[in-house]
């Protein structure tokens, strides 16, 4: 089982259409942005984080948003609560973590950063 983290805190995964069909796309961190094309029927993209120290997913998320992707965008894997604000600011809607991680970093650790829209230099620089 896994847990979905949003601004509201912990919740169950409400995406029921799986990741095999045409509506969802899974991306590995090594995805080459030059070949990254998103078909119009894609409604959910999940980017995998093999380790919290691997920040490629943040740039991929940002590029997807810059290229106009408006669907759901999820970070999945080893993401820690201290990265929640970065994930949201980079364009992710939600983070999917394992039960183990959720046990060690409980809901209040994640909600501590639910104020990610405040104190953000990027939004100042971009108007």
């Amino acid at each position: 089982m896994s847990i979905l983290v949003t601004d509201a805190g912990f919740g169950p995964d409400d995406w029921t259409r799986g990741f095999d069909g045409a509506a969802a796309l899974e991306l590995a961190p090594e995805t080459d942005p030059a070949t990254l094309e998103i078909a119009p029927e894609v409604e959910m993209i999940r980017i995998h984080f093999p380790s919290f120290a691997d920040g490629r997913g943040f740039t991929l998320a940002r590029l997807l948003r810059l290229r106009g992707y408006k669907g759901r965008l999820r970070a999945e894997g080893h993401v820690i609560s201290d990265q929640y604000a970065m994930a949201r600011r980079a364009g992710f809607d939600e983070v999917e973590i394992s039960d183990d991680l959720a046990a060690r970093q409980p809901e209040e650790d994640w909600r501590f950063r639910s104020n990610w829209q405040q104190h953000d230099y990027q939004s100042r620089l971009r108007g």
């Binding site: 919290f52 920040g55 940002r62 990265q83 970065m86 600011r89 980079a90 230099y121 990027q122």
Partner: peptide, 10 residues
Amino acid sequence: WSTDHPEFQF
């Protein structure tokens, strides 16, 4: 710009 830049912390 670089302070807390969400893409560039890792």
